[in-house]
């Protein structure tokens, strides 16, 4: 088997190697920050596959992140399911919900699609509040101490250790990154871009574009669910705030900043934005103004994002 776009593949490996080294250089605090960035970047990569490559702008991806978070968290909290299995349940939760929502939402396009995904996500959020006796509502649930460690193939894993958490996050980030490399740089990725660029033409070349979009939507939802499950289990907390509209906007913003339709854009965008938000966290209310201003500014002057602009100007293989 030959690897397409070898330069990009090499770059991905370099980035992964650098991230691995980072844990030996950075302070504990920064390692923790980087752990969060990696998990949110997984979420953004899932979002980017749909929004950047396939051209479907969802305003409701928080629901898939939350589906993973709750499916995994509740399975562990109430069912006592072991963490690795709860994690798989979380991925399935995101994927299955995305498949069902996709069946409906993909009957619409562009603006309708945005509103429909927003509405479904709002329903999901309200459901987490309505059933707060189960979900803990906006107070959330803290997973039991027994769930702070697990053993996998005889290997004891302690989730209270920042280094362990970092390496788990990095491993899963690497798996998703390489997986998405295979998807986006090969024939399937070309089809996604074809749907984005000209859906009618793609239909007239013999493709069932509804199915292609449903596939993209489901993969995207499953990856978002994976990120949600990982977040909930690693930090031992699940709460409805992850299902809020704001989360959907954040992942959109991460993707926009990094560069929609570029493989590494979500990592860059998530990194830049989380760092920025951390800096601003002293002024809590200013944070949303920055988000607002950025949404407008990017749209006006910077629609391709950081890596997208670099790709268009200098590095065409960065896609």
């Amino acid at each position: 088997m030959t690897i397409p776009n070898k330069k990009l593949f090499a770059l991905c490996l370099v980035v992964l190697a650098l991230l691995f080294m980072a844990q030996f250089v950075l302070s504990n605090y920064l390692v923790l920050a980087l752990t969060r960035i990696l998990i949110l970047a997984i979420f953004a990569m899932g979002y980017n596959m749909l929004m950047g490559y396939t051209g479907l702008l969802s305003l409701g991806h928080a629901m898939f992140f939350a589906a993973g978070l709750y499916a995994a968290g509740l399975a562990n909290y109430y069912g006592g399911v072991s963490l690795p299995i709860a994690f798989v349940i979380g991925i399935l939760g995101g994927g299955v919900l995305a498949f069902v929502i996709g069946l409906l939402a993909l009957r619409t396009q562009t603006v309708s699609f945005m509103i429909v995904t927003l509405m479904f996500a709002q329903v999901a959020y309200l459901l987490t509040l309505y059933f707060s006796n189960v979900t803990g509502g906006d107070q959330g649930l803290t997973l039991p101490t027994a769930s702070r460690s697990f053993s996998l193939f005889g290997l004891a894993v302690d989730l209270t250790s920042p280094m362990v958490r970092f390496n788990i996050a990095l491993t899963l980030f690497a798996v998703v990154l390489i997986g998405l490399f295979a998807v986006t740089q090969g024939p399937l990725g070309r089809l996604f871009v074809a749907v984005r660029e000209n859906i009618n033409r793609t239909e007239m070349l013999g493709f069932d574009t509804y199915r292609i979009r449903l596939l993209a939507f489901t993969i995207s939802g499953a990856i978002s669910g994976l990120a949600g499950a990982l977040y909930g289990l690693m930090f031992g907390f699940i709460g409805s705030s992850f299902a809020e509209f704001r989360s959907s906007i954040e992942v959109l913003l991460f993707t926009l900043v990094g560069g929609p339709g570029t493989l590494l854009g979500p990592l860059v965008g998530t990194g830049v934005m989380t760092m920025l938000i951390d800096r601003l966290s002293g002024m809590t209310s200013a944070y949303l103004i920055v988000v607002g201003v950025l949404l407008i500014v990017i749209n006006l002057w910077f629609p391709k994002g950081i890596l997208g602009t670099i790709r268009d100007r200098w590095v065409p293989w960065l896609k």
Binding site: L57, V111, A286, G292
Partner: peptide, 20 residues
Amino acid sequence: PEATIVSTIGISYIIQQLTL
């Protein structure tokens, strides 16, 4: 249409926070 939605989300955040 899509950029307008994203921009007006931005506008709404700005107005909300300035009011706060």
